[in-house]
């Protein structure tokens, strides 16, 4: 049974690359550029791991994190240099990130 991962980022290219890089038999990737759609999807299909970009159009990663089930492990991805999050994320990854390191992180949840 592959694990389900959601990647939310309003940068479409990143969504694409994320799927191509990590998508495999063991890892099922679903990406969203629209936060609300991602939230709705989560309510029906809670993922095993949720990557959330912080700066989204009209909403922040924090807001999204608060809006979905608390038990879903969440990883914040951000391009900002300094920021404080109100949500207690499992992990925070700074852009640009090393795809190999993130691979290891994903492997950790396998």
């Amino acid at each position: 049974m592959p694990i389900k991962i959601i990647y939310l980022d309003d940068e479409e290219a990143l969504c694409k690359i994320f799927s191509q890089y990590y998508g495999s038999d063991q890892v099922n990737i679903k990406t969203f550029v629209d936060a609300n759609e991602a939230i709705k999807f989560c309510q029906v299909n809670p993922p095993d791991l949720f990557f959330i970009d912080y700066r989204l159009s009209g909403i922040t990663g924090d807001d999204v994190a608060f809006a979905v089930e608390e038990s879903i492990p969440k990883i914040l991805v951000t391009g900002d240099i300094s920021f404080t999050s109100k949500y207690n994320f499992h992990q925070v990854i700074s852009k640009p990130f090393d795809f190999n390191k993130v691979q290891k992180l994903i492997n950790h949840y396998l």
Binding site: E11, A13, L14, I17, F18, Q20, Y21, R55, T78, G79, D80, S94, K95, P96, F97, D98, F99, N100
Partner: peptide, 16 residues
């Protein structure tokens, strides 16, 4: 933020 996003993309594609 503005640079890190495209950098991530470049980085990602390069690794891909």
């Amino acid at each position: 933020h503005e640079i890190n996003n495209p950098l991530t993309i470049i980085n990602g594609y390069a690794q891909l």
